[in-house]
Write a protein that binds this DNA or RNA. Sequence first.
DNA 1: TGAAATTATGTGTATATACACTTATTATTT
DNA 2: AAATAATAAGTGTATATACACATAATTTCA
Lengths: 145, 145
Amino acid sequence: MESKKKQYSELTDCLCTSIRKSARNISQKYNEYLKQSGEDINANQVSILVTLSQIENKTISELSNQLRMERTTLTRNLRVLDKSGWIKTDYGSDGRMKYTKLSKKGRQVLNKILPHWKKAQIQTKKLLGEDLQLFKQNLEKLTNL
Amino acid sequence: MESKKKQYSELTDCLCTSIRKSARNISQKYNEYLKQSGEDINANQVSILVTLSQIENKTISELSNQLRMERTTLTRNLRVLDKSGWIKTDYGSDGRMKYTKLSKKGRQVLNKILPHWKKAQIQTKKLLGEDLQLFKQNLEKLTNL
DNA sequence: TGAAATTATGTGTATATACACTTATTATTT
DNA sequence: AAATAATAAGTGTATATACACATAATTTCA
């Protein structure tokens, strides 16, 4: 009778698993800091609002590409942001396209959470030390595969 | 009248956002490969089954710690695996604890997806090249913060 | 021993994710 | 101009995620 364990050794060391783990962990960490702002907002929502702050009047598809977020996922995420009044949407000459931008309230909430977000970032970057740039480059690679 | 853009420059370069992006992207990639196995299984489910294959009869809380997955999230994820017949659960002498292990069907599905998973891993690791080990170390740091 | 604290797990609710499919609008072709 | 193709976005469904709260079993201790 042989041992039934120690199989799948090739599967136990998996980049996908590691990154998902890390994403769960770091998200919770950032959310803890965000909570201290008193605003009811999370890391995912912030990342969308920040993307919108960079270039206004993006279509859903453009935003979806930039965030590497499935378009239909984004549609639902935007609904939550809209419910909170942090974004505004309108239609252009092409009736198919829907343009989204930050609302005044959206800018205000970003301003409010900024210092707490910064705290989370500083703590996180400290962990990586001088590996930071290389780490980000490699993350970038995995974001574009 | 000043420009209203280019604010939040500190927020645009965020590790949490980058890792979440990367997690979405790499998960989709792995899922594409898994689909070629013909089995209806995804990367998250595989990672849980693999963890179960390492040490049998884990409690929910132990598994939750090892996977860095919120316990109540895991409860729901296990329900899906159970529905597919890939795991078995039973209670020990302590009536509070619930032990989970791979079923025979669970081992079979891991065997079946193994080559496709491997393909995804190889492609991914190739991208990182010799940065792989360092990258994993840094991911590990962010998984334990 | 029985009340109180602790521990392990589950549920309610809300958001995040993505695939398959649908709808609506615009562009192209005949 | 009408039929067809292409494009942009939404919906149905299922899973993933996590916080707040609830439940059930065990342990502790007065």
